[in-house]
């Protein structure tokens, strides 16, 4: 039959989590279709149509999809799923919110946050904070899957998919959007940045946490944090890297004043190179770090900033 990918977007731009999900979908079932549900999101549908390997884009443009709330999205998906044998979404907070509802209504289990498609019915996924990898085989029937976006390469551009408008499904209206407070940043997104610099409790305050900014600017890095730093209010929740935050896998991950609890490691140990800066040489973070710098971060961070400037990073 075909697979359906739920596009990740904010009505204005398409996120590359979608391109990555398309890669996974093509390994499960082809052709690949992409659903763009939102409000005034025609530009997003056009961008989706340019993803290589996508045959068709379904566009559901209606006020009820403006925020992709779970209940109307469930109704919309159920109105089209009979044409698909696989439904996939990135394991973002949007995908995780919607897809289990669809799975339950289709009476199938969901396969959460896969790392690899071994064959169209066999998948690898992390369990126990990534300390074990489960290989599981799904039964016959529809597959509902979320993917770990850092584990798949993004599908390229160059596609010329057709765009088909689809009608909104009716929804009971039991939920409504009431506001948001989004972090604004000019920096790359945590989950797609090539360099991530994260701070932990060792930073000591929201004020001190800003020490990382200048280095992030020079390296075009995203800024992340441990749970302890978020709980202490140094940075907002969307900075949290880890088992129950975001999973990242940049080329370079710099952990500053982070001890390296298993829950934190779960979210960053697939990074290509890891640097740890910590004053405690016994800190578990050093067990996964390629390069460790033992010392006071309040001395090392300014030094690092200065040395980067000297070497021409701006």
């Amino acid at each position: 039959m075909a697979s359906l990918v739920i596009a990740e977007h904010d009505n204005a731009s398409l996120k590359d989590a979608t391109h990555k999900t398309v890669t996974a979908a093509a390994q499960v079932s082809t052709p690949v279709h992409v659903l763009v549900a939102g409000e005034n999101c025609a530009a997003v549908a056009e961008a989706a149509a340019r993803i290589a390997g996508v045959e068709k884009v379904l566009l559901a443009d209606a006020p009820s999809y403006a925020r992709q709330l779970a209940e109307p999205m469930e109704a919309l998906l159920l109105s089209i799923t009979d044409k698909y044998d696989a439904i996939l979404a990135p394991a973002t907070t949007t995908g995780k919110n919607i897809l289990p509802r669809v799975a339950a209504r289709l009476d199938v289990g969901q396969i959460s946050e896969i790392l690899k498609v071994i064959s169209p019915d066999t998948f690898e996924r992390p369990i126990y904070a990534g300390n074990a990898i489960e290989t599981l085989r799904a039964p016959e029937g529809k597959k509902v899957i979320t993917i770990r976006i850092t584990a798949f390469a993004a599908a390229g551009e160059g596609g010329r998919a057709t765009i088909e408008q689809i009608v909104a499904a009716s929804d009971a209206g039991h939920s409504k959007f009431a506001g948001e407070a989004l972090s604004k940043s000019e920096r790359p997104e945590l989950t797609s940045a090539k360099v991530v610099i994260s701070g932990g409790r060792g930073l000591g305050s929201a004020e001190n946490f800003k020490l990382l900014d200048s280095i992030a600017d020079k390296l075009h890095a995203a800024v992340g944090a441990s749970r302890a730093a978020v709980d202490a209010g140094y940075v907002p929740n969307d900075y949290q890297v880890g088992q129950t935050g975001k999973a990242v896998a940049p080329d370079l991950y710099i952990a500053v004043g982070i001890s390296g609890a298993i829950q934190h490691l779960a979210g960053m140990k697939d990074s290509r190179k890891i640097v740890a800066i910590n004053k405690d040489e016994e800190a578990p973070i050093f067990q996964v770090a390629d390069y460790g710098l033992v010392g006071d971060l309040f001395k090392i961070i300014p030094e690092l900033d200065e040395e980067l400037s000297k070497r021409g990073y701006k």
Binding site: D10, F177, A178, E180, A181, L182, S183, T191, P236
Partner: peptide
Amino acid sequence: EIDGGLQTIE
């Protein structure tokens, strides 16, 4: 708690 920050729903 969503990927971009906080969202309130009713």
